[in-house]
Computed example of a mutant assay.
Amino acid sequence: MFACHFRASDYRALLPALFVRAIDYVTTQDLNALDPGRHTIPGIDQDDAFFMILDYQTAAESSVGPEFHHKYCDVQFIIQGEEQFGWTELTDEQHQQLSHDYHYDPQKDICFFDQQLMTLSYETMSHDQFYLFTPRTAHMPNLSVTTTSQVRKVVIKIKYPA
């Protein structure tokens, strides 16, 4: 997992150009005015990157467990509300075994697994930074910090440069 403040310029040098273009575009939009759902990024093929606006209530526990992906990285950040997430890095072997045992869905590019299998670290999302989850970063979002919170969040999906 990679966390970075939007005001820090170092992520522009560290991340691939596609990531920087997508983050820069999305953060210049009026995200409160956009409808929930999937949105394209002008000048970037929608198979390479797109973003979603999500509105939901956080919960004390996840109903689906941690998730990971194969094709896309997630760049997530909070617009409104507060949220905690769990995360852990997977080895290539764990990624492959969990994909098999828990039936990775290639159509949705997602695999959920039993959170009891891994020890997760927990973080509270800050409004002034973004969080990058690669396909080898299992993450469990949408958790309450102290009480249930109404959240508006952005998830930018960027094709993993494999």
Results as ranks from 00 to 15, higher is better:
residue 123 E to I: 09
residue 109 D to A: 02
residue 110 I to R: 07
residue 90 L to E: 09
residue 105 D to Q: 04
residue 139 H to P: 07
residue 106 P to F: 00
residue 135 P to Q: 05
residue 3 A to P: 00
residue 5 H to G: 01
residue 20 V to F: 01
residue 4 C to E: 14
residue 104 Y to R: 01
residue 14 L to K: 15
residue 86 G to L: 09
residue 103 H to E: 03
residue 66 P to N: 10
residue 128 D to M: 03
residue 46 Q to A: 12
residue 149 S to N: 10
residue 38 R to M: 10
residue 142 N to T: 06
residue 80 Q to V: 07
residue 70 H to Y: 12
residue 98 L to T: 03
residue 62 S to V: 03
residue 158 I to A: 07
residue 39 H to T: 06
residue 23 I to V: 14
residue 5 H to T: 04
residue 156 I to W: 07
residue 89 E to C: 06
residue 105 D to K: 00
residue 125 M to V: 01
residue 122 Y to T: 04
residue 144 S to M: 04
residue 70 H to K: 14
residue 162 A to T: 11
residue 117 L to C: 01
residue 110 I to C: 13
residue 76 Q to M: 14
residue 97 Q to G: 00
residue 30 D to M: 03
residue 91 T to S: 15
residue 54 L to I: 04
residue 151 V to R: 09
residue 118 M to P: 00
residue 143 L to R: 09
residue 8 A to N: 15
residue 11 Y to M: 05
residue 74 D to F: 10
residue 71 K to E: 14
residue 144 S to C: 08
residue 24 D to A: 11
residue 12 R to N: 01
residue 31 L to A: 09
residue 127 H to M: 04
residue 3 A to S: 15
residue 40 T to C: 09
residue 9 S to C: 02
residue 144 S to G: 07
residue 14 L to I: 03
residue 33 A to C: 03
residue 160 Y to W: 15
residue 94 Q to H: 08
residue 124 T to I: 15
residue 142 N to E: 11
residue 6 F to M: 04
residue 56 Y to S: 03
residue 162 A to W: 08
residue 34 L to S: 06
residue 72 Y to E: 03
residue 158 I to G: 11
residue 125 M to Y: 03
residue 119 T to G: 00
residue 23 I to Y: 05
residue 74 D to S: 07
residue 106 P to A: 02
residue 19 F to V: 08
residue 4 C to S: 15
residue 47 D to L: 04
residue 144 S to V: 07
residue 145 V to G: 05
residue 150 Q to R: 13
residue 37 G to H: 08
residue 133 F to M: 11
residue 32 N to S: 12
residue 110 I to A: 10
residue 65 G to N: 12
residue 124 T to D: 06
residue 1 M to L: 12
residue 110 I to Y: 01
residue 119 T to I: 06
residue 26 V to P: 05
residue 138 A to L: 05
residue 69 H to C: 06
residue 88 T to L: 10
residue 131 Y to I: 12
residue 9 S to V: 12
residue 155 V to K: 06
residue 158 I to N: 08
residue 84 Q to M: 14
residue 101 D to L: 05
residue 101 D to C: 00
residue 11 Y to K: 05
residue 25 Y to D: 05
residue 75 V to F: 09
residue 46 Q to L: 05
residue 29 Q to R: 15
residue 51 F to P: 07
residue 19 F to Q: 02
residue 34 L to R: 11
residue 45 D to F: 01
residue 46 Q to S: 13
residue 125 M to S: 03
residue 85 F to Q: 07
residue 115 Q to N: 11
residue 120 L to T: 02
residue 36 P to W: 02
residue 49 A to K: 04
residue 140 M to C: 13
residue 43 G to R: 07
